[in-house]
């Protein structure tokens, strides 16, 4: 079943009150409080996550951890990241905010350059190996990978990924900048997901 949920900037998203969709498209402005609020609510929609897998492209694992600070306790949740480094962002930037790697609260797998096959197999491998449920995947972001790959290729990639999320019983959300794409892009990508959450109209 596919649904749309529109939530205002300052309200809490109500995704948890629905039957739990496996794959949610989170369409909010890239810089907005709603993006962070939705992300935190989607991370914890099934209660405290046992495992969180973060995917980062333009952001860094450190930035994501900072955003999740009020929602995730690294001492009780297993954290890992699949981090894409590329020309626009170096591996050094990827570790920004994580501090000393020996004491970092998360495992980070670096993927050099935008290689969708490597990215996909690494994510599915982590989904299959995760031992602490509920397992939550935060993909940040589709806007970033759409700068490297065609819309059709991303669409096909996401079909494999969303299938694997559902098969493994995980819960995933995928960020996309609601101001960064034509309406047609959202209409094309939305059917891949069980549900779309978006910010309220006050930003428009």
């Amino acid at each position: 079943m596919r649904r749309d949920a529109t939530v205002s900037d300052n309200s809490s998203s109500e995704v948890a009150s629905h039957e739990s969709p496996s794959n949610v498209l989170c369409a909010c402005p890239a810089v907005s409080s709603s993006r962070g609020a939705h992300c935190r609510n989607l991370l914890t929609r099934e209660g405290t996550p046992g495992t969180v897998i973060g995917v980062t492209v333009a952001t860094s694992p450190g930035e994501r951890l900072a955003e999740w600070r009020d929602a995730i306790d690294p001492s009780t949740t297993q954290l890992s990241f699949v981090d894409v480094t590329h020309g626009g962002r170096s591996a050094a930037m990827s570790s920004d905010g994580l501090g000393d790697r020996d004491r970092t609260p998360a495992d980070v797998v670096e993927i050099e350059e935008m290689d969708l096959r490597r990215l996909g197999t690494e994510i599915t491998s982590q989904l299959q190996q995760a031992s602490e449920a509920p397992v939550v995947l935060c993909f940040d972001s589709l806007t970033d990978i759409l700068q490297f790959e065609s819309q059709e290729r991303i669409h096909r990639f996401l079909n494999v990924l969303t299938a694997r999320v559902e098969e493994t019983g995980a819960y995933a959300h995928y960020h996309i900048d609601s101001d960064g794409h034509a309406d047609r892009t959202f209409e094309t990508l939305a059917p891949v997901f069980d549900e779309t959450v978006s910010a309220g109209t006050e930003w428009g």
Partner: peptide, 12 residues
């Protein structure tokens, strides 16, 4: 399997 699925999806 993952190899087949991504091969087909990514046209490799």
């Amino acid at each position: 399997d993952d190899s087949d699925a991504f091969d087909i999806a990514l046209d490799e």
